[in-house]
Simulated scan of single mutants.
Amino acid sequence: MNYTDEELVSGCKRGSSKHEELFYKKYYGYVMGISLSYSKDRDLALEIANDSFLKFFSSIKKVESFQTVKAFLRRITVNTAIDYYRKNKKYQSHSDLEIEIPNQNEVNALSSLGFEDIIKLINQLQEDLKLVFNLYEVEGYSHKEIAGRLGITEGSSRVYLTRAKAKLRQLVHLHLQEYEGR
């Protein structure tokens, strides 16, 4: 039997493990997709996804409208990824990047890249660069919001975004070279 979000959330609010399991199965791909966009490592993405579900189920009573379930779940998942970043950022190293100005061929190459190619390139970014890039470009957070959530300055957020874009340009350039060499 297929349950509606309303039925699943009502069951979860009652503490029904059956409804929690069905909700998990229904939204696993969605949450895992978000988690993967914030982590290079599949195991870490799975940990983020599972923690996100645990947080969702523990705060299920806050869900007032069944139309907002997916948005609420997304917000929890993004915040969980941010928490993992904060917890692990002391172990990350920052490498200097050569910043290049893209030429017209590279700009045209972006339009020829497929969705999966772009995701693969983004996944090659350092975790901190990838996180800021996703928060700014995908989620639409401002630099002020990113700074507040990550415990960095707005200037650092801008620098991380600039570095992420510069690294992506380098990766596109390398991708083009590989493509032209085939």
Rank of each mutant, 00 (worst) to 15 (best):
residue 7 E to C: 06
residue 115 F to G: 06
residue 13 K to G: 12
residue 111 S to V: 08
residue 95 S to K: 09
residue 67 Q to I: 13
residue 22 L to Y: 03
residue 28 Y to R: 14
residue 106 E to W: 03
residue 109 A to Q: 08
residue 102 P to D: 02
residue 43 D to I: 13
residue 19 H to M: 07
residue 119 I to T: 13
residue 63 V to P: 04
residue 78 V to Q: 08
residue 11 G to K: 01
residue 45 A to S: 12
residue 22 L to W: 03
residue 91 Y to K: 02
residue 30 Y to H: 14
residue 60 I to K: 00
residue 57 F to D: 02
residue 16 S to P: 10
residue 11 G to E: 07
residue 100 E to N: 07
residue 45 A to L: 00
residue 14 R to H: 14
residue 109 A to M: 12
residue 34 I to L: 14
residue 39 S to H: 05
residue 71 A to R: 11
residue 53 F to E: 00
residue 58 S to F: 11
residue 18 K to D: 14
residue 52 S to C: 02
residue 36 L to R: 15
residue 94 H to V: 10
residue 10 S to Y: 09
residue 73 L to T: 06
residue 40 K to V: 02
residue 42 R to C: 03
residue 82 I to H: 06
residue 95 S to A: 15
residue 10 S to W: 07
residue 48 I to T: 00
residue 123 N to T: 07
residue 84 Y to H: 11
residue 75 R to P: 06
residue 67 Q to A: 14
residue 68 T to Y: 04
residue 18 K to R: 10
residue 20 E to L: 11
residue 55 K to D: 03
residue 75 R to T: 13
residue 9 V to W: 07
residue 34 I to P: 01
residue 114 G to H: 10
residue 27 Y to K: 13
residue 2 N to M: 03
residue 60 I to D: 02
residue 55 K to M: 01
residue 13 K to T: 12
residue 49 A to E: 01
residue 121 L to C: 13
residue 9 V to N: 07
residue 109 A to N: 04
residue 42 R to V: 09
residue 104 Q to W: 08
residue 109 A to R: 06
residue 73 L to W: 04
residue 107 V to H: 02
residue 76 I to G: 04
residue 11 G to S: 10
residue 49 A to T: 05
residue 87 K to W: 07
residue 103 N to L: 01
residue 48 I to R: 03
residue 12 C to E: 08
residue 113 L to G: 07
residue 94 H to R: 11
residue 52 S to H: 00
residue 36 L to W: 10
residue 67 Q to V: 13
residue 72 F to T: 14
residue 57 F to P: 15
residue 114 G to I: 12
residue 54 L to K: 14
residue 20 E to F: 08
residue 113 L to K: 02
residue 32 M to F: 15
residue 96 D to R: 09
residue 72 F to G: 01
residue 74 R to T: 13
residue 96 D to P: 11
residue 95 S to C: 14
residue 45 A to N: 05
residue 57 F to I: 12
residue 74 R to Y: 15
residue 81 A to Y: 00
residue 1 M to L: 08
residue 31 V to L: 07
residue 31 V to N: 09
residue 118 I to G: 00
residue 59 S to Y: 13
residue 95 S to V: 14
residue 115 F to K: 09
residue 72 F to A: 07
residue 95 S to T: 13
residue 80 T to C: 11
residue 119 I to D: 12
residue 72 F to Q: 06
residue 41 D to V: 00
residue 58 S to I: 05
residue 58 S to N: 15
residue 16 S to Q: 07
residue 94 H to E: 05
residue 63 V to G: 09
residue 19 H to K: 06
residue 46 L to K: 15
residue 77 T to K: 03
residue 92 Q to P: 00
residue 35 S to W: 10
residue 92 Q to W: 06
residue 41 D to I: 01
residue 48 I to L: 06
residue 24 Y to D: 05
residue 118 I to S: 02
residue 2 N to I: 09
residue 83 D to W: 09
residue 63 V to D: 05
residue 121 L to V: 04
residue 75 R to L: 13
residue 96 D to V: 15
residue 88 N to Q: 04
residue 45 A to V: 04
residue 91 Y to I: 04
residue 45 A to Q: 05
residue 76 I to M: 10
residue 112 S to V: 02
residue 73 L to C: 08
residue 74 R to F: 14
residue 90 K to P: 03
residue 58 S to W: 08
residue 14 R to Q: 15
residue 94 H to L: 05
residue 24 Y to H: 11
residue 100 E to G: 01
residue 118 I to C: 05
residue 23 F to D: 02
residue 36 L to V: 08
residue 23 F to R: 01
